[in-house]
Computed example of a mutant assay.
Amino acid sequence: MQRIPVQNPDGTPAMPTKRRRAQRWVEQGRATWVKTNLRLKAVRLNAEPSGRKTQPIVVGVDPGKLYSGIAVQSSKATLFGSHLELPYPKVRERMGNRRMLRRSRRSRRINRELPFPLRNHRQKRFNNRRQKKVAPSIRANRDLEFRVVQS
């Protein structure tokens, strides 16, 4: 059974409801259809609700390499579930292109007419690697999941 998000008149979230109940509220003029940040269909109440009690809900994320699953669940029902197509392949391709362009740019800077010790190489640096770095492709995946969970 699909649940529809409900918003109070001031825009704060309320407990989701069944699709049929939401349609009845709209037909009776008690609510209007709105779109959320995730482009989901939701209803906004026109009058103040009788109560503002809510149940605790939990967001679960099943991370993957190419796809991630996201679910929002209360103790009684699954409120939202979706699969995200992650940007991993696109980010990986762009980082490979960036690496290739950088290497070609660096090779053009060297004056090969001079003997090797006199060439214009960059100075050797050994302590320039961050140890706790997250790869850009993985970071892009986690950022997308975080943006979806936040909205």
Score class of each variant (00 low, 15 high):
L66N: 11
T12Y: 03
K18E: 13
Y88H: 10
V72G: 07
A22V: 03
S82D: 10
R112Y: 00
S107A: 12
P87I: 00
Q131Y: 08
V61D: 14
K124D: 12
V58M: 12
S104A: 05
S82K: 08
S75N: 02
K35D: 09
P136G: 15
K65V: 14
K65M: 11
S74N: 13
A71H: 05
M1C: 11
N128H: 03
V26L: 04
Q55G: 03
Q73N: 06
I57C: 09
A31W: 00
P115S: 15
Q2A: 15
R103A: 09
P56V: 00
S107N: 10
P63C: 07
I4K: 01
Q150N: 06
Q23V: 03
V26A: 11
R94I: 00
N37G: 14
E93M: 04
P56T: 03
T78F: 11
V91A: 03
T17E: 08
N97L: 05
P117T: 09
A47K: 05
R109N: 10
A14P: 00
Q150K: 10
D10T: 15
K18T: 09
L114I: 05
L45W: 04
P63K: 08
V6Y: 14
P16K: 11
W25K: 08
R108F: 07
V26C: 09
K76V: 05
G60S: 04
L84Q: 09
V6R: 10
E48C: 07
G60Q: 02
R129G: 02
R98Q: 11
T36A: 10
S68M: 11
E85S: 14
P87Y: 03
K35L: 10
I70Q: 14
Q7D: 15
G81P: 06
R106F: 04
E145H: 02
N128L: 04
Q28C: 03
G69H: 06
A31I: 01
H83W: 00
V58I: 06
T32Q: 15
R129Y: 04
D62F: 08
R52A: 05
D10A: 15
D143E: 15
D62Y: 10
Q55R: 07
R20I: 09
R105T: 01
Y88P: 06
V149D: 15
L114M: 13
R129A: 08
Q23D: 07
E113R: 11
A77N: 02
Q28G: 00
N46P: 07
K132C: 05
T17L: 05
V61S: 15
V91N: 02
G64P: 00
V34N: 14
P117A: 07
E113H: 06
R39K: 14
F126G: 08
L114K: 13
R21I: 01
E93N: 05
L66A: 09
K65L: 13
V91Q: 01
A42E: 03
E85P: 05
N128C: 05
E113G: 03
